[in-house]
């Protein structure tokens, strides 16, 4: 570094580091991260013959028919419905039960809250493989294998701890004035929760809902184990079988992949601040 020779120069002008190398390296990394997605988009519009000749570049004659074909062959109308039910059920379940628990922890001085929080923390860091096998056979004895509701219950259990920690910290920031006023007016805790706390903490609920929705939509291991009947496959597990069956027909499999990720990327871009916020906080809390 050269010493500044003129002592009166403004601080900013004195040391504005040259950022061009930063941009060059970051652009290369951006190509590494997004290039494969661009290639995927190109390939979704090609036939097998063209992919053999030109596996990376843009299509010469786009074949849009790949998309309706993939939708049909991949049984997307069924799998999309299954995944949507799982996502909606889990998000609703987590927000209701997790929201209630978070309210209890944040505002009602739950007796024994320290032990309860520790229990949730330990429970959420147990590996799925520990309880997967007994859980599967327990669920089978209940008749809840190949049952979307059965899987929703499992997803709710697994996603709740994170939701509770995020919602609790959100609710702790809310002032208690409104709640106290409602209580004086004779409102029960359920009414306070429903009419005051939920409306005030909806951004927290939105963030949690997005994070849970994404993790359920993308989930693979449990969906593979608990939904083995083809009519119950999710978008993800069905795609896994689809690529195995049509492993050489990349045009078709790429089109299916594009259909799967476009909604995710679209929602992510529209709400990226909430997503990144929720996912990074979730990552930091386990």
């Amino acid at each position: 570094m050269t010493e500044p020779r003129h002592g009166i120069a403004p601080a900013r002008a004195r040391r504005e580091p040259n950022l061009l190398p930063n941009h060059v390296v970051l652009t290369l990394l951006l190509v590494f991260s997004l290039g494969p997605l661009v290639v995927l988009g190109f390939n979704s519009l090609k036939g097998s013959a063209e992919i053999g000749r030109n596996p990376l570049g843009p299509p010469t004659a786009p074949i849009w028919q790949n998309f309706p074909d993939a939708w049909e062959i991949g049984n997307f109308s069924t799998t999309t419905r299954n995944s949507t039910i799982l996502v909606a059920g889990t998000v609703a379940g987590v927000l209701v039960t997790g929201g209630m628990t978070a309210y209890s922890l944040a505002k009602l001085n739950l007796p024994g809250s320290g032990a309860f929080t520790l229990y949730l923390l330990v429970g959420s860091s147990l590996p799925i493989q520990l309880f997967l096998v007994p859980l599967f056979f327990l669920w089978r004895s209940f008749g809840m294998v190949n049952n979307l509701f059965g899987l929703v219950v499992i997803y709710v259990a697994l996603n709740s701890p994170l939701a509770i920690f995020l919602l609790r910290s959100y609710m702790l920031q809310l002032p208690s004035d409104f709640e106290d006023a409602a209580r004086i007016d004779g409102a029960g805790e359920w009414e306070v929760f429903r009419r005051i706390v939920i409306p005030l903490s909806w951004p927290g609920f939105l963030t949690v809902g997005l994070v849970v929705a994404l993790s359920v939509w993308n989930e693979f291991l449990l969906a593979t184990v608990f939904l083995t009947d083809q009519e119950r496959f999710t978008v993800v597990t069905s795609y896994f079988n689809f690529t195995a069956r049509f492993s050489r027909d990349w045009g078709l499999t790429s089109a299916a992949a594009v259909m799967m990720i476009l909604p995710i990327i679209g929602i992510f871009l529209a709400l990226q601040r909430q997503f990144i916020d929720g996912l990074t906080k979730g990552g930091l809390k386990g």
Binding site: T97, S104, L110, F116, G123, A157, F193
Partner: peptide, 29 residues
């Protein structure tokens, strides 16, 4: 009731689901 029971009623659904899905099967493992 208001101070001790109601808070646990709010936490009950989470606790029940957690016991059935995670704690019970973990112990039986």
């Amino acid at each position: 009731v208001r101070k001790k029971v109601v808070p646990w009623l709010f936490a009950l659904p989470t606790l029940a689901i957690n016991l059935v899905v995670i704690l019970g099967p973990s112990i039986s493992a």
